[in-house]
Structure formats: structure tokens, C-alpha cells
Design a protein around this nucleic acid. Structure first.
Lengths: 335, 335
DNA sequence: CTGTTAGCGCATTCAT
DNA sequence: ATGAATGCGCTAACAG
């Protein structure tokens, strides 16, 4: 209803019979103001439908109340969930998110981060990505930074990650406990730490169980569906029989399952499968997929809140995150 | 390298021996400046690693160079693709995106849009959503607005949408041409226009072919996978045999296929399936799914560019978008 | 606790 | 074409 013409603190100052400073004070809330005046101001603001001009605020205060969120490939399974968590967490803060998609391309990521800095974000959340560590370290010197799904040695305290080694260990261990000994592993892109760590956990579990990891059982995939199918074909060609496969993510598990199906190999009767991520589709695979669920959303949320702390100058210790084994029908005891 | 202390146009004015005004002029680029001075200014800016303060710019100019993008449920298949398109399109403009997730909840959406307005976005892109039309119409009065995947009557020229009726018509027609006459349809949430329009196209195709649409063949789903499976169960219970199913989206087609599989009904031998959306997984279904592909990314990009035009005061006519039939093995001739 | 006074960094009149 | 002056709307010392 109210005319959309700009109403400023000056207007509400007049209407409330106080100075602009006082209005500003109730706005920021840091300096004490008489209850009487405060309510008068509040009333005036409501009456005039006052909206503070964020640019003036930012210019004067030096704070932008925005935080930059750099993600990789909008629409990719796990990262989207993390992103949702970040959004959720941010909603609990006074900060609005500024987004960019790095597309796993270092240059794109760096450009995006620079744009963020140009826009004077108060903080930065980086989800995954391949941009050089030094760049992140350097960035962290300019602005509070949290990293999700990636480990930067020099920024350890600001990195949130699930314990991949442990999760993979647990998944593999589960298969071992069911009597499997010939367990294949389809890895992700090994240049990616997640993949490397899951491989490590897999190998460790075998070793601890007295099983010597067999290189023939390890196939490097791409984290994507077709590579899972391809990997199974390769495993089959290698002649050495296996009774279970641990896939570094669900996508590849889907691909693997498809390849097995085409070969007439039954799941879980002939071969058991364990995935990683617990994507929505996992429960709908035939048979439903046993998988490791990452607390992706929780991580995103935690990152947002930790960043808030950081901005306020409080260094926070982020709790460790662990994945949880979701047991479904794609796994059976081996005899 | 350079000290991160704020370098302003004053600094570069000094260094280039010109006035701040001149610096500002080369910055905005609207007012002519001697080539000589311009290069001097540019040099100074480069030397001092000058970054304009966006807030000062915005405050002084009234433009924010941000546009608000309201999406629904980060991580949902089609909308993410549209979103990617929007991002792509935006990269070709001087505007940065501000994001929010409406979660299909009218209140959340409205709050998000208000936050955008508070942040003085120069434009708005709304992808889907359930917030009241009047609210959008009202919003459009304050700021240039483009709507994707939703039709607002009073904003027709600013809405981008695929022709669902035609697409559904074409998909159904394809089945008819293959000899199918008993074609079931699993709809989406019928309150959603996409769903309603696809139903309409389905019915129209039947009618035009001289087939009377049978209510028993129409099951309302939720756009989600489980509902596809459930719908098949219901169809099976209704005793009347069908030789093909047209699903309002791929998700439900996946669910339907799963249900058929469980019942031992072969695809496409016994029943043909056509989906909608061409999600990445469609090509990996067994057998691969025939589906209608929407130009989602193109729509997003077009919306971004059209918005840019709008902001510049140029009303643009957005071209119509049509879906394309992707023929795969889930469909067979009926005898 | 509150009003007054200065800027924040830049775009934009105005004159020139 | 260019410099000087003014103000965008607000926050932050500064006095009282």
C-alpha cells in the first residue's frame, strides 16, 4: 500500500521525534536505547514500512551480511545436499548467500571467489573443488573461510569432512563379517581425496582381517554411473572370482548392478554390493542398495554455523562427522 | 602482494593526475574521456590493484548489479538444470546471482522474495513455486521479473515454459502410432499446471485418434518415484489391460518400471513406457527410457538474457520452447 | 543514554 | 572533456 518511495532513517527519525542516530541504534542493536524511544522508533518503522538500505549499511559499516558459497556442478547428488544444509544453516544467521558454481574447474573457481571478494562477502564457504590449496589458504587470510568435502592441510580447523577411511573400513568390514573374502572395490577418481581415502579404508579393513588386498580387485572409476558398469566388465574379464563389490559411490554401484544384471549375475545371491552416499535412488534399486550414508546436510549446516562463529571472531572446533551404514538387500552372507 | 588496504578512486585519481570524477567516468564508461587520461587511469588501477567498492557504487547509482534467483528444492532434477542455465546466462551479463530456495512453500518463497527486494536486486527470476500469482504480479511492479516453469496469466510475456500440452500430445501420439490403444497415464500432482497440461495433451491425442479416454487409465501421482510404482499397482488392480503407459515424468516412469518388473511384466514386450524430462538416469534404465526432453537449460539461459533486456527497458518476446521426443528401447510396436 | 558531526566510496549534477 | 561540489542512506566516533 505504502508508496514505494524510499523511506530513510531520517523519515522515521522525524516521525518518532528522535535523532537519526537513535534510529540507527535500534537498528544495529548494539548501543542501548530507552525502551520508550525504542518502541516509538519501531512503531514508526512499521508505520512507514521502512526497509533499511543494505548498501548504505554495508558502506558505512564495512559489513555486507552476505557470505559466498562456492559449489561444484549444481545438480550433482551429494553436493546438492550439502548445499541445502548450508542454506538451512545460513537461515539461522543474518547472512544471505551469494552463489557460484565452480564446475570443478580451478580457473572458474578462482574467478568466482574473486567475484565474491569484490562483493565484499563477510565469509566464504567452499564445497569441494579443485582450485589450488595455496589459493584457499591465501583467501582465508582475507576472509573467514570454511571448506566442506575437501581437506586443506593448512586449514584443517576450517575443513568439514566425513571420515572416509573409517566409513570405507566399516563398509568393507561389514562384507568381511558376512563371510566375504574376495571383495572387489570400484574406486572414484583417485586424484580425489575422497576416493583415495575410501580405497585406503577398504585396504585397511582387508589387511586387518588377514586378507591380502588383491590389485586385480581394484578398479578405478570416475564416480559416475557408466564407469561402474565398465568396472564390472573388467572384473569379469580378470577371471578371478569375487563375491562382493564395494563401490566408492552409489552412482557406480548402480552401473555395476546393471552390468551384473546383463551378465545374469544375481544380486545379492551371487554378488553382494555396497555403495556409498545413500542417494535417494539407492532405496529403489532392485534389490535396494546397502550403502554408507554421509551426514551431508548436517555438514552443510554445521559449516554455515561455524562460519558465523568465525566471523564473530570465535574460533570453533567442528565436530568430526561419520558416515552410517544403511543395510539393505543388496548384500547377503557368503558361504 | 599489494597491501589489502582499501584503494579508492581517490588514490588512483592522484596517481593518474586526474580528478576522482574522471576516474569514475572511465569506471562507468558512459561519459567520454580522453584516450590519454583513460589509459593513465587504467594503468593506475592496474598498478594499485584497484577494486571498486560495489556498495558505494550501488548506493550512489541505485543499481545493485545483482539479480535474485528463487528456485525450489535444490537438488531436484529438472529445476537444477534450469538453474544451471540461468547461471550460464547470467555469466554473460554484468549481474551476479543471489539465491534462495523456496522449497515449494509459499511463505518461504515470499520471504525469500522480500529478502531479495530488501537487497535491492535489479531483477528477479522465479523458477516454479507455489506462491500466489497476485504476489508475483505485485512484485513485478517493483522489479523486472521473469518466471520459468510456471504460467502467470497477468505476466504471460515474462513466463518461460515448455509447451506441455503439445509435448504430451506428441508422446501419446507416438504410442498410438505404434499401434497402442490402451494407453494409461500416470499424472503428476494435478494442482500443478505442468501435470494438468500433460494430462490434457494425453487426452487430446487419444481423442484425435478416435480413442475415448478411459478414466480407469488415469492415475494421479506425485511426480515422485514411489508414486509411479503405486500407480502401476493400481492399474493392475483395475483389471482392464493396458499395453502402454505415459508417465508425466521420468521419476514416476522409474517407479512404474520397477513395479512392472516385480510383477514379471516385461518392458517393452508386454508394456511400453514413455517418460518425460529425460533425466540422466533415463538412458540407464533397463531398457533405456523413451522420454520427452525439455530444453531446460536453454530456458534458464533465455530467462537470464531476457531479464537483462528487461532491466534495460527493452521488452523482449521470449520464443516458445518445445520438448523433443527421445526414442529409446522402452517402447515397442503393439500387435 | 542521546543528539551532532563526520565520513564510507562512488556517481552525478553543475559549472568550466 | 573535466574538475568541484553535492548527496546516496547509514554507522560510528564525538561530545554532552
Amino acid at each position: 500500500m505504502s508508496e514505494k518511495m524510499k523511506v530513510t532513517i531520517g523519515d522515521i527519525a522525524d516521525r518518532a521525534n528522535v535523532s537519526k542516530s537513535t534510529v540507527s541504534r535500534v537498528l544495529t542493536g548494539v548501543t542501548p536505547v530507552t525502551e520508550e524511544k525504542r518502541t516509538a522508533v519501531l512503531a514508526a518503522m512499521a508505520a512507514l514500512d521502512y526497509k533499511p538500505n543494505v548498501f548504505a549499511q554495508s558502506l558505512a559499516s564495512g559489513q555486507s551480511f552476505t557470505i559466498g558459497v562456492l559449489t561444484q556442478n549444481f545438480g550433482s547428488p551429494v553436493y546438492d545436499i550439502i548445499l541445502r544444509g548450508v542454506l538451512l544453516g545460513l537461515e539461522m544467521t543474518p547472512y544471505s548467500p551469494l552463489f557460484a558454481d565452480g564446475r570443478w574447474q580451478p580457473e572458474t573457481e578462482q574467478k568466482a571467489i574473486e567475484t565474491f571478494l569484490d562483493r565484499r562477502v563477510d565469509g566464504l564457504i567452499v564445497i569441494g573443488g579443485y582450485c589450488p590449496e595455496e589459493f584457499l589458504v591465501e583467501t582465508a587470510r582475507h576472509v573467514p573461510l570454511m571448506v566442506i568435502g575437501r581437506e586443506v592441510a593448512a586449514l584443517e580447523a576450517h575443513c568439514l569432512n566425513v571420515d572416509n577411511v573409517q566409513a570405507a573400513y566399516e563398509a568393507t568390514r561389514y562384507l568381511i563379517d558376512l563371510g566375504h573374502r574376495d571383495i572387489a572395490h570400484i574406486t572414484g577418481i583417485l586424484a580425489h581425496e575422497d576416493a583415495a581415502q575410501r580405497l585406503e579404508g577398504y585396504q585397511q579393513a582387508l589387511t586387518d582381517a588377514g586378507i591380502v588386498p588383491n590389485p586385480d580387485f581394484i578398479i578405478e572409476g570416475t564416480f559416475r554411473r557408466p564407469s561402474g558398469a565398465m568396472a564390472v566388465e573388467m572384473l569379469l574379464m580378470r577371471a578371478r572370482p569375487f563375491s562382493a563389490i564395494f563401490c566408492a559411490n552409489d552412482q557406480m554401484a548402480f552401473g555395476a548392478r546393471l552390468a551384473l544384471y546383463r551378465r545374469g549375475i544375481r544380486v545379492p545371491d551371487d554378488v553382494s554390493i555396497v555403495g556409498f552416499d545413500d542417494q535417494p535412488d539407492s532405496a529403489f534399486m532392485t534389490p535396494p542398495l546397502t550403502t554408507m550414508r554421509q551426514p551431508a546436510e548436517a555438514m552443510g549446516q554445521a559449516a554455515a554455523l561455524a562460519l558465523w562463529q568465525l566471523i564473530q571472531g570465535q574460533e570453533t572446533a567442528v565436530p568430526p562427522f561419520t558416515a552410517e551404514l544403511i543395510i539393505r538387500d543388496s548384500v547377503a552372507r557368503h558361504h
